[in-house]
Amino acid sequence: MSEPLNVDDTSFKDVVLGAEMPFLVDFWAPWCAPCRVIAPVVEQLAVEYEGRIGFAKVNVDENARVATEYGIRSIPTLLLFKDGKPMTQIVGARPRAELKKHLDASLT
């Protein structure tokens, strides 16, 4: 799996919470310009961390339940899950190097 998986309200639990490896979830919407900026960065990271960290995308327009459950009120928000729990919340388009620091931290 080298591309972020599109998950929805229904599949979120199985895919993300049930995963054995850490999972980075990109909450986004089509009308959000910074979301379009961060998407290719997340795609690159998905390739780079393949097999070590899972990557998923949640379209908040279509999946309000999971966005509400995690209190998402800004997009893009990246939520990094470990052992089924949100560990780090990253709001806004941030530099790649900063994202990598959080990802590396989740692997220790």
Binding site: W31, C32, V60, G71, I72, R73, S74, P76, V91, G92
Partner: peptide, 17 residues
């Protein structure tokens, strides 16, 4: 509360309200 009601981008986050 940043990302949970505190926002610096109306365009990005307005629709949540």
């Amino acid at each position: 509360f940043t990302g949970r009601g505190v926002s610096y981008c109306a365009m990005c986050d307005g629709a949540f309200f």
